[in-house]
Design a protein around this nucleic acid. Structure first.
Lengths: 317, 317
DNA sequence: TGTATATTTGTAAGTACTTACGTAAATTAC
DNA sequence: GTAATTTACGTAAGTACTTACAAATATACA
């Protein structure tokens, strides 16, 4: 029990299961109290059939919120107990139409009375508590249907990770990371070209010395992402060398780098950002679109073979 | 879903189970998110071992609130995954001492981080709801541990049944019921004696004509209980012929008859009630004690062989 | 009117636990 | 010091469902 306290709500699933077992276990005692040879798990199916005789398996399943397989299995037992009978559907031969037998009809009033009593007892139990379990279940189910636990966890994780990411300016010791991260993604999709190697091996000469800038994302002491701003003309920079390690992709680190690059370009007085990419790189294009980039109509020729799309972002003062 | 609305909290068990399944199902997605080949049901065991290496199976079971069998099964899988290792206990050869392997130790930080994230997500989820599920579970478990559902249902059922019981004065047409109910219980424990038959066959002559009274309990149109007041002297009545049908025993009908008989004796101006019984009839003696009867010190001789205890109740004005 | 597709159901196997039971080791009783 | 009891744990089978699959029938459409 201590364990649950420690873990808190992370153990929610187990805890729900335990209470469920406790409750259904006690339900068996209740049936014994009323002298019924009746198992708790039969109850929903039997109840549905008694309330609406002539339902078929699928309809019962829908009404009680279980699968047809579960209904089918319970029916098999109920038939063996001679509490219900099953006939083929007249119009539709696939259907199994279920009705109560005489024996079933005989125990129905007892069961109804018992249901009443259980309902009263449960309602009384729930009013004893400050937090109403029934309503809490309803609300929690709804909240989970709106956004799954996995999605919620993912959001929190991404937030945590992003908060732990630094954006750094280039330093010579980062050149190997800068190269490795870029080569890694290029090789995954394309071939590394001559123009790539020049810039990646000698960023100082080919990017910084020409008035460009390189930004790096650091997470847990490791460089996990890069991007560069390369001057094209007096008021335009190219956003290039955008790479994020596959180990941390999907966490929003690209977005952080993009935001930082745009801020940097603004600080440098640029009025426009430009970039080249490939339509195969869907996640990247999504990111660029999110950042505000739109497809360029008249595009200058690119030195890279792999580029088949150009985008730009006007930086309004 | 409609069905649940209709049945209300009677379907609590099923509902709990469903949410539990939903939550644990989504937990699997969460592990996938963190790139862990890890099943949700391993979690409690692994967590316990990581937090306290060197625990043995029984201790783990106790910490996580499951059975040793469950722990044993999960451990088998964890060993197959090379996440933990099991050794015989040194001092106690029966024990299986569990520790993390290198691989297990390697994923532990990831799992810890993940637990943190899940906890945050769950806490956030719970704050979205007006009724807190976690607290509701706690309170409900506590309430159920204080008094089981079966006991609660029984209390409500007894209350309902008692409210539907009438206490009637004797009428000649009730003589067969009067006799049958008394013979039934006498034969269960003893033999029917000559003195019994006289009074049961001719209550008018042997009880009513001598200034006695007979009370009957009617439930659902049937006579289900009897008792009689038989004058002993000017101020004392004997409480006798107390019988309740086995079909409705334990519902408090005896208590209703007893209360009615005492009220009647008071109305008749009696100052004392007296009765004879047998120590084998524990439930009856309990009832008499509840009604206020205490063992008589000096007892007159009884015409019935089966009587080995006498009790009396002073009726203070 | 035949064929592809969908619906309805039953059966099998899986899930995440439990209870029941058997065996071996340790402890207690005498 | 041996016998009886208790403890520790593994295995098997059960529970109340699920998902996956298979077979039969019904419907849609060309």
């Amino acid at each position: 029990m201590d364990f649950f306290e420690q873990l808190g709500p992370a153990a929610l699933g187990s805890r729900l299961r335990r209470l469920s077992e406790q409750v259904t276990g006690q339900a068996a005692d209740v049936y014994r109290l009323y002298g019924l040879a009746f198992e708790p798990r039969w109850f929903p199916v039997f109840y549905a059939v008694a309330a609406e005789p002539g339902l078929h398996v699928g309809e019962i399943a829908e009404r009680i919120g279980q699968t047809h397989a579960a209904v089918s299995q319970v029916l098999k037992e109920l038939v063996k107990q001679a509490l219900v009978q099953v006939q083929r559907g007249e119009a539709d031969q696939r259907r199994s139409i279920v009705t109560l037998t005489e024996k079933g009809a005989a125990i129905w009033p007892v069961l109804q009375q018992q249901t009443q009593d259980v309902r009263q007892a449960t309602e009384q139990l729930l009013t004893e508590t400050r937090h109403n379990l029934w309503l809490a279940l309803e609300e929690t189910e709804y909240a989970l249907s709106r956004q799954s636990l996995a999605k919620r966890v993912k959001a929190i994780r991404n937030q945590r990770i992003r908060a732990a990411v630094d954006i750094l300016d280039f330093q010579p010791e980062y050149q190997p990371d800068f190269k490795q991260l870029n080569v890694e993604w290029i090789e995954t999709y394309f071939r590394v070209e001559e123009a790539d190697l020049k810039a990646l091996d000698h960023p100082q000469e080919y990017i910084l010395a020409r008035g460009g800038h390189i930004l790096l994302a650091r997470y847990q002491g490791r460089i996990v992402g890069t991007c560069a701003l390369i001057p094209m003309d007096a008021t335009t920079y190219e956003l290039a060398k955008m790479a994020v390690s596959p180990l941390v992709q999907g966490l929003g680190i690209g977005r952080l780098l993009g935001d930082a690059a745009i801020a940097k370009a603004r600080a440098l007085g640029a009025s426009r950002l430009y970039l080249e990419s490939n339509t195969r790189l869907t996640p990247a294009l999504n990111l660029y679109h999110q950042l505000g980039f739109r497809k360029t109509v008249a595009a200058p020729p690119s030195p890279y073979e792999r580029c088949n799309i150009q985008m730009e972002l006007p930086l309004l003062a």
